[in-house]
C-alpha cells in the first residue's frame, strides 16, 4: 500500500515535470519575434537572417528541438545561450552569486525581525504592544515592496547618500558589494517579515491554547515559561512552511526589485532573456525553477505522509 502510494506519487511527479517541460517549450515557441532578427537588427538581409537561423539551429522542426533540449536537461546539460554564446549553467551560476546572498540576507533579516516580534506580541496578547505590532505588520503587508524600495533609494541613496542606490560592483569589490545588497535586502525583507510576524504570532497563540500547554500552565508555569518550554518549538512548523515558500519566492520572484536596483540577479536574467528571445536560457532556467518547486512539494508531501499516516489513505 505504502509502496504503491509512493510509486503513484513518483509517477505523478514525473508526469508533472514532463508537462511543465512541454508547456514551457510551446509557450516559448509561441512568442512572437525571431531571435535572429533581434541579433541582426534593422539592416539585416534575408540571406544573413537565414544563415544565422541555421547557425542557431532554429531551422529545424519543433520536435527535433524539443527532443534535443529535453534530452540535454536529462543529462544535466542546460544548453548554450543563443545571445551570450556561453553555457546556460555558467550564466545561472554568475547570477546565483548575487541572487543567493541577496535571498539569504533578506531571509535572515526577515527571521531576525519576525520571530522575536511575533513571540513578543503573542506573549503580551491584547496589550498595547501587541496592538502596535499587529498594526505595524498590517502596514508592512500593505506596502508594495518596489515602492518601499523607491522610498529607500530616495532617502538613503539620493537624499543622504549613505548607501549605493543600485548596480552591483562584483564580489571582488569586497565590502562595497555587500553595501550594494543592503537596500534591496531590506526592501525584500519588509513585507516578508510582516507576514512572518503574523504567522508566528497566530501560530504561537494557537499552540498556547492546545491542551498540553494548558496542562503545563495549570501546573503553575507562567505564560512566558509555557511559551518558551512548550509552545515555541511547535509553533515553528507553520513558520518554517511559510519560510520555505518565501525562499522560493526570493529566488525567482525578485525581478521587480532587481530592476529597481539594477542588480544582475536571476530574475533579471529571465526577464532580459525573454525580451531578447534567448529561448534556450528562458526554457532551461524556468524549467529548473519549476522542477525545484515541484520536487520540494513532493518531498514535503512525503514528509507529511510519514508523520501523519492518515493522509496516505487519500489520493
Amino acid at each position: 500500500m505504502s509502496l504503491l502510494w509512493l510509486a503513484r506519487r513518483g509517477l505523478g511527479l514525473c508526469l508533472a515535470l514532463l508537462a511543465a517541460s512541454v508547456i514551457i517549450f510551446v509557450l516559448m515557441d509561441l512568442l512572437p519575434g525571431d531571435p535572429a532578427e533581434i541579433m541582426l537588427g534593422t539592416s539585416a538581409r534575408p540571406d544573413t537572417l537565414a544563415a544565422l537561423r541555421a547557425e542557431m539551429g532554429l531551422d529545424r522542426s519543433a520536435w527535433v528541438r524539443y527532443a534535443e533540449w529535453a534530452g540535454g536537461l536529462l543529462r544535466g546539460d542546460f544548453g548554450k545561450s543563443q545571445t551570450y554564446a556561453v553555457p546556460v549553467a555558467e550564466l545561472v551560476g554568475e547570477r546565483l552569486v548575487v541572487t543567493l546572498p541577496l535571498a539569504l540576507i533578506s531571509l535572515c533579516l526577515t527571521l531576525i525581525i519576525a520571530l522575536p516580534l511575533g513571540a513578543w506580541a503573542a506573549a503580551r496578547r491584547n496589550s498595547t504592544t501587541d496592538t502596535a505590532i499587529v498594526a505595524i505588520t498590517q502596514l508592512g503587508v500593505a506596502i508594495p515592496n518596489f515602492w518601499f524600495a523607491m522610498m529607500l533609494v530616495l532617502l538613503f541613496a539620493i537624499s543622504w547618500r549613505w548607501l549605493p542606490s543600485g548596480g552591483f560592483p562584483g564580489w571582488d569589490a569586497g565590502p562595497r558589494a555587500a553595501l550594494a545588497l543592503i537596500l534591496p535586502a531590506i526592501a525584500l525583507a519588509l513585507p516578508q517579515a510582516a507576514i512572518l510576524t503574523r504567522v508566528m504570532r497566530s501560530s504561537l497563540l494557537e499552540t498556547l491554547s492546545e491542551d498540553y500547554v494548558r496542562t503545563a500552565r495549570a501546573k503553575g508555569l507562567t505564560r512566558g515559561e509555557a511559551l518558551r518550554r512548550h509552545a515555541f518549538r511547535n509553533a515553528l512548523i507553520p513558520v518554517l512552511t511559510i519560510l520555505g515558500l518565501q525562499f522560493s519566492f526570493l529566488i525567482a520572484g525578485t525581478v521587480v526589485i532587481e530592476n529597481v536596483f539594477s542588480l544582475p540577479g536571476l530574475g533579471r536574467l529571465i526577464f532580459q532573456a525573454i525580451n531578447q528571445r534567448d529561448l534556450v536560457v528562458v526554457r532551461s532556467v524556468v524549467m529548473v525553477l519549476i522542477a525545484f518547486i515541484i520536487t520540494v512539494n513532493f518531498v514535503v508531501d512525503i514528509a507529511y505522509a510519514l508523520v501523519d499516516p492518515r493522509l496516505r489513505g487519500r489520493g
Binding site: V153, I158, R161, P164, S165, G166, G167, F261, S262
Partner: peptide
C-alpha cells in the same frame, strides 16, 4: 558598468 535604471545611474554619478 551596466546601469540601465535612470535613478540608479543618477545616484551612481552623484556618488
Amino acid at each position: 558598468k551596466i546601469i540601465g535604471d535612470p535613478a540608479a545611474a543618477y545616484a551612481a554619478m552623484m556618488a
